[in-house]
Amino acid sequence: MEAQVVGQEKLMIDVKRKKDGMARGLGKVIGYTVGIIGIIISCLLFATIIGIFPGITLFFGSLGIIYLSSGKQQVKCPHCQKRQPVVKGVENFKCSKCQNLTVVNWK
């Protein structure tokens, strides 16, 4: 992982994308399926007056399941050396510790 200067507080790093295993792929499919079914059920609950509050809870819970199912990889911030999870394929991330923007070049 080599850092290149892009701007004043921006660095660009090259990160090798790790392959997911078979179990991780199956977990992604199950997570996305459960999340989409939860969103559909929450939309049906929104239609009723009684089901609005459970529908809101189910909707945000389903979005959380879909987010957790997306593939993440640990990346080290070139500014402060903190390791943090980054969704695979994103173009950049903002470090939670030093608040600096880092551009990611996936290989």
Rank of each mutant, 00 (worst) to 15 (best):
R24K: 10
D14C: 00
L45A: 13
I41G: 00
D20A: 12
G71L: 06
T33S: 15
T48M: 14
K82S: 06
G25K: 14
P54A: 01
K94C: 10
A23C: 02
C80S: 03
M22E: 04
P78F: 03
Q4P: 00
H79C: 00
W106R: 02
K18Q: 11
V34G: 04
V75S: 12
I41Y: 10
G35R: 10
R17P: 00
F93P: 07
L11E: 09
Y67G: 04
D20R: 13
F46I: 02
I66C: 06
G7P: 00
E2M: 10
T33R: 11
T48A: 12
V90R: 09
I13S: 11
I36Q: 05
V90S: 05
V104G: 01
E2L: 12
S62V: 04
P54K: 03
L44H: 07
S96H: 10
Q4I: 14
I30Y: 14
G71M: 07
I39D: 00
I50F: 15
L63S: 01
V87T: 04
E2P: 05
V15F: 07
H79F: 05
G25Y: 00
K94G: 07
L26C: 13
K88R: 08
V15I: 13
I30Q: 11
P54V: 02
L26D: 11
F93A: 07
F93T: 08
P54W: 08
K72Q: 15
D14E: 04
S62I: 02
K19N: 09
V34Y: 04
S42Y: 10
E91T: 08
N105T: 04
S70E: 09
K16I: 11
Q84D: 03
I52K: 14
I56H: 09
C95N: 12
C98H: 09
T102E: 05
G35S: 14
D14F: 06
M12C: 13
G25P: 00
C80M: 10
Q73G: 06
V87Q: 03
M22Q: 01
I39Q: 03
E2N: 15
K107N: 04
I50L: 15
L44Q: 10
C77W: 05
K28T: 07
S96T: 09
N92R: 01
L68F: 15
G55H: 09
L58W: 12
V90M: 03
